[in-house]
Design a protein around this nucleic acid. Structure first.
Length: 436
RNA sequence: GGGCUCGUAGUGUAGCGGUUAACACGCCUCCCUGUCACGGAGGAGAUCGCCGGUUCAAACCCGGUCGGGCCCGCCA
């Protein structure tokens, strides 16, 4: 007999079927008993009246792997409108140990309980509500891929084992590479720019590694970056493209993930089109005026300031996402493009969404000589292995281009309304966690 | 790296000097023919993170230590 998925059981009313899955819940009432079976399609209720069948489950815990054959009945009182009766139960894999965490009701996501949640991840993820986070994550990725493909991007994969740091700033992980020192990629930056010379438009969705000793709700040492780069593009076009992607993601997720979003009571974000922009200087002034905390003159936004400006944009600009523009050159990377009209600022925008930065969206300096000079000015050696091959691409012709690095887990966290990026990561890695 | 906090049955919490450490969920036994957070009766399960100190007496106070969390810095 062919296996039927729980989600398709109701289509087999009146027929004998076989289902396979995990014991999700036992409700033993006595003469009439209900067990709930979970498979990739969801849940199905099985009514067990035969004592001998009930007895097969004695001592077996949630998680036990079962095969059940029985007759499908349309039944209004059953969840999903159908159930399996007169079952013959076969225990495929008995589980005798009690589950370390419960999987049939919402798990605690309180910060102080995160350790339990993550230590028992393999079991906890069987919880339907936990699964929903990652179905939404998969949908976000699907939406991004679709959006890239519609815009004629080529998907690629660049190496994560590197000879040297790809850019200044973030700390890198160092490791032994057959006696030489290698690093883990802290960004696909250089490779995606090189690939502009090949495909014009490229993207990848791969891990990024940062050895930052950060212990916050927004940082991990390994996370997925959606890296994109496009040639022959103006700053305005680039910003419009990235903003369009957030719109596309939200539309897609709210179209396809209704059930999952409801499990978390996720509220659809209000987004203006185009995503509004506020220069950093103006944000500092507004924030200082509103809170009394003096940030005027600073070359970055404080975390609290990022939250504040998102609230401000929601209230005044009808958008829960906002671009921070006109970044001072004092905090720019050597490969960023300095604004042609105002040399005090770089052509960079950070996309803030519901209080956190989810993407950095800058233009790159594409002129070889200018780029080398900017590198040297920041004490970089153009001959170093980390830079040499990167610069080669420019020497042989790269058009004006720009791109972005977009944090997948932060995006999912904020779409759902979670409070820690680790909640939106299957097996998070941070300064305190390397397992499971 | 700095600051502030928290470690009590499998899980989530209460207790904050004084007999046997309490409650909920889960687990075990029994009852229960429409449950769906089933209900009812009973039961098992905790050297109160660890080490030391103060005290007649420490889960509780003090010091140290280990492990978390949150914020800042840094970063996406």
């Amino acid at each position: 007999m062919k296996r039927v998925l729980t989600s398709e059981v109701s289509q087999h009313a009146g027929k004998e079927i076989k289902v396979q899955g995990w014991l999700h819940k036992k409700r033993l009432l006595g003469g009439l008993n209900f067990i709930v079976l979970r498979d990739r399609g969801g849940l199905v209720q099985i009514v067990v009246e035969d004592d001998a069948e009930v007895e097969k489950l004695r001592g077996l815990q949630i998680g036990t792997v079962l095969e059940v054959t029985g007759k499908v009945h349309k039944e209004e009182r059953a969840p999903g409108g159908a159930e399996i009766r007169e079952p013959k139960i076969t225990v495929l894999v008995p589980v005798e140990h009690e589950s370390p965490i419960e999987i049939d009701k919402p798990l605690s996501h309180k910060p102080e309980n995160l350790d339990t949640l993550l230590d028992n991840r393999a079991i906890g993820l069987r919880n339907l509500q936990e699964q929903a986070i990652f179905k939404i994550q998969a949908k976000v990725l699907e939406a991004m891929r679709e959006y890239f493909k519609k815009n004629d991007f080529t998907e690629m994969n660049t190496p994560k084992l590197l000879a040297g740091a790809t850019e200044g700033g973030a700390e890198v992980f160092k490791l032994d590479y057959f006696g030489k020192e290698a690093t883990l990629a802290q960004s696909a930056q250089f490779y995606k720019q090189m690939m502009v010379g090949v495909f014009e438009r490229v993207f990848e969705t791969n891990p990024t590694y940062r050895a930052e000793p950060s212990a916050t709700t927004r940082h991990m040492t390994e996370y997925i970056t959606i890296d994109a780069e496009m040639g022959f593009v103006t700053f305005e076009e680039l910003r419009s493209f990235a903003g369009g992607m957030l719109h596309y993601i939200v539309n897609k997720v709210w179209q396809d993930c209704d059930k999952e979003l409801k499990m978390w009571n996720a509220q659809r974000p209000v987004l203006a089109d185009p995503i509004p922009s506020i220069p950093m200087k103006e944000i500092h002034e507004l924030y200082t005026k509103a809170t009394g905390t003096g940030t005027v003159g600073e070359d970055d936004l404080r975390p609290d300031e990022e939250k504040w400006v998102c609230e401000y944009a929601k209230k005044n600009l009808k958008s829960e996402a906002v671009y921070v523009t006109e970044w001072p050159v004092s905090s720019m990377k050597f490969y960023h493009k300095i604004n042609e009209k105002n040399p005090k600022v770089a052509d960079r925008s950070d996309l803030l969404f519901r209080g956190v930065e989810i993407a950095t969206v800058p233009m790159r300096e594409h002129r070889y000589e200018v780029l080398v000079n900017q590198l040297k000015a920041m004490k970089g050696d153009p001959e170093a292995p980390g830079f040499k091959y990167y610069l080669q691409a420019f020497q042989y012709g790269l058009p004006p281009h720009g791109g972005f690095g977009w944090g997948l887990e932060r995006t999912v966290e904020k779409i759902i309304g979670l409070h820690n990026v680790k909640e939106a990561t299957l097996f998070p890695r941070d300064i305190n966690r390397l397992t499971p």
